[in-house]
C-alpha cells in the first residue's frame, strides 16, 4: 500500500561530527523520499549512519547541511521546542532498549506523551487503556517494567508510540533485544499497525527476516544510500 503523498524527504542531507582532520560524515549527501503509509526497513553495516538518519527523520536531530522536510515542513531548521511539538504531534518512537520509565506502571508510561499534549487525566487513562489493548496487553496495565518480559515491555513502548495517533513511527532496532519468537510477534504487531491504521513506519534493523516485514528496504553504506529495493524476499 505504498501509495500516499510524500511524507519525508531528504535533499542532499549531510550530518558531520568533529572538526578538521577528525571530521566524520555520518551522512554524506543522502537523497531520500518516503511516502505516507509506507513500511520501510533501513539496513546497513554498523556505523553506516542508520541511526543518524532515523534521528533526523524523527525530528530528534537536524542535518548539518541539506534539507530535511517532514509533512512539507522544513523540520531541519526548526528550533528545539518546535521540533518537540512536531514529535509530540506526529511521531512515535520505539527503541531497542524499550526506554520505559522505571517504577512507573505500563498505563502511566503510555499516558506520558498525552501529558505534554495537555490531555485531561480521565481521557488520558482511556486512551492509554485503548492503546494497551491494541498491542495485546490487557490485564498488564498496572505492572511496572520490572514486572514485564522484554516482549511485553516493547509492546508497552509501542502502545506509548501509538497512543497519540501519530503519522509516523520510527523504530531503531526494535527487536534487537528479543528472541526470534518474540521478534516475530512484535513484527506482526507493527505490520498490523501499518496496514490497519495506515501508520508510516521507518525501522532500522540488522536482520533480513525482520526487514522482510517491510515493503521497502534501504541499505546504507558509509553515510550514503547504497540500495533501495521494494519487498526483500527472505533468503
Amino acid at each position: 500500500m505504498a501509495s500516499g503523498a510524500t511524507l519525508i524527504s531528504f535533499d542532499k542531507v549531510w550530518k558531520s561530527y568533529g572538526q578538521g582532520e577528525a571530521r566524520i560524515h555520518a551522512l554524506a549527501g543522502v537523497d531520500l523520499a518516503i511516502r505516507r503509509g509506507e513500511f520501510v526497513a533501513i539496513m546497513g553495516p554498523s556505523g553506516s549512519g542508520k541511526s543518524t538518519a532515523l534521528n533526523i527523520i524523527g525530528c530528534l536531530d537536524t542535518p548539518t547541511a541539506g534539507t530535511y522536510s517532514f509533512e512539507g515542513i522544513d523540520a531541519g531548521r526548526l528550533d528545539r521546542n518546535r521540533r518537540a511539538m512536531l514529535r509530540n504531534l506526529y511521531v512515535g518512537f520505539v527503541f531497542q532498549g524499550y526506554n520505559l520509565l522505571p517504577r512507573t506502571t505500563a498505563a502511566e508510561n503510555v499516558e506520558l506523551p498525552l501529558i505534554y499534549r495537555g490531555v485531561a487525566a480521565r481521557e488520558r487513562r482511556n486512551l492509554a487503556m485503548q492503546a494497551l489493548a491494541e498491542v495485546g496487553l490487557v490485564g498488564r496495565e498496572h505492572h511496572t517494567p520490572a514486572e514485564l518480559s522484554g516482549g511485553q515491555q516493547q509492546r508497552v513502548a509501542i502502545a506509548r508510540a501509538i497512543v497519540t495517533r501519530p503519522t509516523l513511527l520510527v523504530a531503531d532496532e526494535p527487536t534487537g533485544n528479543l528472541d526470534s519468537a518474540r521478534t516475530h510477534e512484535i513484527m506482526e504487531l507493527l505490520a498490523k499497525l501499518n496496514t490497519g491504521l495506515g501508520l508510516t513506519i521507518v525501522m532500522v534493523t540488522h536482520e533480513t527476516d525482520v526487514a522482510s516485514y517491510a515493503q521497502r528496504t534501504i541499505r546504507f553504506l558509509d553515510g550514503r544510500v547504497a540500495s533501495d529495493t521494494a519487498k526483500l524476499e527472505v533468503a
Partner: peptide, 16 residues
C-alpha cells in the same frame, strides 16, 4: 538523564 531523554523524545518542551 535517560528519563529526561525519553520525555524530550516524546514531545516535552524544555520548560516542561
Amino acid at each position: 538523564t535517560r528519563e529526561i531523554g525519553i520525555r524530550l523524545a516524546i514531545g516535552a518542551h524544555e520548560k516542561h
